[in-house]
Computed example of a mutant assay.
Amino acid sequence: MERTEMSISGIGRSQGGLYSHVRLDGMVKINGDTDCLSFDSNGTLTLEGALQSEAVTVNGTATVEGRVNANRMMLDGLVTFKDQAVCHESLTANGRLSIAGGLIGEKVEIFGSLKTRGGVQCEWFHVHGGFNIGGLLNAGMIDVKLSMPSKVNEIGGDAISVKRFKKVSVLEQVVPAFSARLQAEVIEGDEIDLEYTEANIVRGNVVRIGKGCKIGRVEYKDRLIREDDATIEKAQQI
């Protein structure tokens, strides 16, 4: 089937289908699954169906009801995926990204906030802001710079680093719920470097428990580095 182009400016509505390039400027609603080579939305988008594209670019607000499958995604603004998202090469989000299902990718960069009901699985995971992940965060390299409260059930990776990006504000001192901290049940990896983290279990080869941490149990194979103000209820070399 031959691919055609879709181009809408202003307020418009279209049907899903097979396209070469999709360019949307304004307030647009698409009914049905959409398969294209490139997808570019500027403004407000509602897509009632699945989206498959080599490259997805969003500036503004977008809601996709179905599964999203792409090689590359560049998302700026408020983006909601109401199903699973798969990104085979790189996903960069500036703003707020919400995914009802899980996220599978190669390289994930979040500048702002990420919220998922399911797990996140990728090779490289970088967050400059915060996240709330309903399942497992599993990545080879995990680099987190906290500037807002974050939560995850379990983290697994090769190299895991969690640091705080900004200084403690007056609001955080008065209301601890607003503090830039990570809460997790289990954190497991080869090299682990944590600050401002609360976890029941931390397990790794080389583990550093830094400032602001409250850890229930640390299990380490090679070395444990503990800063003075870090709280560890139990530490065990295995």
Rank of each mutant, 00 (worst) to 15 (best):
G140F: 00
N42S: 15
F39L: 02
E154W: 00
S38M: 09
G60M: 04
E54Q: 15
G118M: 09
L146R: 07
E89I: 07
N94V: 09
I99L: 00
N153Y: 10
L78W: 07
N94K: 08
R67W: 04
E109H: 09
T116F: 00
G101Y: 04
A50Y: 02
N42D: 15
G112P: 05
S150Y: 03
I110G: 04
S113M: 14
L146H: 05
A100V: 15
Q84R: 13
L137H: 03
G118Q: 04
G135C: 06
L78P: 01
T46S: 15
E106V: 02
L146V: 01
N132F: 03
G102Q: 05
L146S: 08
G105H: 00
F81T: 12
N94D: 07
N69A: 07
K145T: 04
K82Q: 14
P149N: 08
N138A: 10
S150H: 07
V64F: 01
A62R: 05
V79M: 11
W124P: 00
S41W: 06
V127R: 13
V79H: 06
N71S: 14
I99A: 06
A55S: 11
I110V: 13
G49S: 01
V120W: 08
K151L: 10
L45D: 03
G102T: 06
G134C: 06
L51C: 01
I104G: 12
L47S: 06
T92M: 11
E89R: 15
I104A: 10
I133Y: 02
E48R: 15
G101K: 05
F39I: 09
